[in-house]
Nucleic acid binder design. Structure first.
Lengths: 355, 355
DNA sequence: CGGCGCAATGCAAAGGTTTGCATTGGGCCG
DNA sequence: CGGCCCAATGCAAACCTTTGCATTGCGCCG
């Protein structure tokens, strides 16, 4: 069982020095070598099934043609399209992608980033950063971008969505349907999306002169169905004096709708609900989710481009890091509807009956 | 800007040889070194923020503590849970995961596998293999497992589902609802799941003495909604003499249901439809999908264990490779229903009207 | 015809870690 | 008290590639 052929093997066969082989095989340096030798080397390499040993190259060059992607949980449907976007850009340029999940845990994130740095990744795409992130500044000299999220201080380039605009669209839509008492299931404010969607809700609520009622705002501790359920329970325990619920994300909305149903409230007949992200299949749910569409794939795509720029132009740390804001789009579906004129009292009655 | 600290740096500070540092840092060899030195080395390493350079280690040992996962498309919801299962097992043991998509393209798969081999992955989990796979035998001496899929010749260990049992459950369920004329949207027979689900359908159709009608079987070229739509169109163009459609996977079923609706046929009122996989959120679709639940996460988990075994026990190529078959479970939801006594003629009439 | 420059190739070091073998020193047994 | 063994550590090679510099040989210009 011969082990993997190396450049020395090729050099031996062709009868040249190993450095010649190295140059012949590299498109950027093969012009230095006579065409015949380049041809012969290529031929022998192919016959032997030669594959350059990445470890050797990495050791010498301190680069690995590998980048890391860190997400909270690949099982959350918003991430796969983003990851795919990154991979599509990068694999075309010969980069490999190493992936890790953190479950939103800060310590775990530090671990996986360390493990990636140990593997000499050339760049990192973080979709798991917190709004006040302590980790990124300590990463040092490997390029980092954040995707879907950003940090309070612009410490790394980021690709984010126009959250403010998205929330404004959703709220405007609800108001145009006659809703005035609108609850907000907000995301965790420790995460930029959670924070800015909540902030946008408050801003536009004021501007649209909707009534202020602190009971109508509940903060989730995570972006998932379970938290959506918990928050809906909390909300309903406080009051049922609302006709619509704006949720900071689709999965929260799904959980909320489940609880409404459990309490005998129908969506959208009794309560309209909006989500955010337009996650895959959101249009096939029952009810089909009215939500804000974001370009998940594009975000990954842009993040990868940013990363490539940073990697290939070196540490151009001049001025502020780039901040790409992708436009969003409201998608109106079945989970929102014109407010029923007599909705609030009826809601209350049903709720009482369900207890 | 100091570059990354190395073992030499630590050795210099502590005043020992670099090999001593190496041994002190490795849990498997640190018993060879006096406890005081181990402590001091650990201390200095921590202070310096030392991270072993994986390239150096990999060069020396020919192992990288990295494994590769190859999937057709991470955007297909069945894969993320599986990937997560692999990662959970592996990351705990200090392995990193590199991920690649192939879009089911054979050449692309060869490419990404080559790129992973160049990076000295210690193992490969393939969810993209074809039934007659030419690639795996050429991989050589790095352990491979296939997940979700298998090959005709048992050339590598695999983790698959009990497809036969799943199809039997689905078919039994439909028959118990009074369906007799049942169409089959089968998957590509070039893929083991496609092949064995189709084969199981035929076997159990015979055993249950359901009528044989070749027009009722349509083969998809891929497991996605678009192919589901195409196949449904094909089926309807041939005949509408059926009351149920058994689909080889959920995404096909989703596409099928779309087309039925477009033709004015309601699911489940006019036609019952079953899927396979119970992909995430399949229970929230409209109609909620009756389908066969498979353990995606568990499959990844088992695959990772198999891989670890193979990696750590060396090439124990004795006997046939392991074949783990995970049990499945029928999940009855809203897309199937008792056959309407007058369904077939009515179906036909509606179909005619839609044209 | 001599010298210069350039094209093609060789040389050797470097990069960080691991590991078989060598060395040292101390303790223990005979 | 001498010899032996073991524990602790050092030494050096090996893993494979890249790359700055050296070398060679040839062609061309002056």
């Amino acid at each position: 069982m011969r082990s993997r052929p190396t450049m020395s093997d090729i050099a031996g066969i062709v009868g040249v020095h190993v450095s010649t082989v190295s140059r012949a095989l590299d498109p950027k340096t093969c012009h230095l070598i006579s065409p015949e030798i380049v041809a012969k080397v290529g031929e022998v390499a192919a016959k032997l099934g030669f594959r350059p040993n990445a470890a050797g190259a990495s050791l010498r060059t301190n680069r690995s043609r590998t980048i890391g992607i860190v997400v909270p949980d690949i099982t959350d449907p918003v991430f796969p399209p983003m990851i795919r976007g990154v991979e599509d850009v990068l694999s075309e340029r010969g980069y490999a992608v190493v992936l890790a999940n953190t479950d939103g845990d800060e310590a775990r994130e530090a671990e996986v980033v360390a493990s990636m740095l140990a593997r000499s990744v050339d760049g990192l795409a973080l979709a798991s950063s917190r709004y006040e992130d302590k980790l990124i500044p300590r990463i040092g000299d490997v390029p980092v971008v954040t995707v879907f999220r950003e940090t309070t201080k612009p410490v790394a380039p980021c690709v984010v969505f126009d959250e403010n605009c998205g929330i404004r669209h959703a709220l405007t839509h609800l108001v145009s349907l006659g809703h005035r008492r609108i609850a907000n299931i907000a995301g965790p404010r420790t995460i930029s999306t959670g924070y800015s969607r909540w902030e946008a809700f408050e801003r536009h609520r004021r501007e649209m002169k909707l009534p202020l009622d602190k009971r109508l705002v509940v903060f989730a501790d995570g972006f998932n169905e379970q938290e959506g359920e918990r928050c809906a329970e909390t909300l309903l325990a406080r009051t049922s004096d609302f006709t619509a619920i704006l949720c900071a994300n689709d999965r929260l909305a799904v959980g909320v709708i489940d609880v409404l149903k459990r309490y005998g409230l129908r969506c959208p007949d009794d309560v309209s609900v909006t989500g955010f992200n337009d996650m895959p299949y959101a249009g096939r749910f029952v009810p089909a989710l009215t939500t804000v569409r974001v370009q998940q794939y594009k975000a990954g795509w842009e993040a990868a481009r940013l990363l490539l720029d940073a990697i290939e132009t070196g540490p151009g740390r001049r001025g502020k890091p780039a901040r790409i804001v992708l436009p969003v789009e409201l998608v109106v579906r079945g989970s929102t509807q014109q407010v029923a004129s007599k909705a609030p009292p009826r809601t209350r009655r049903r709720l009482a009956a369900a207890r």
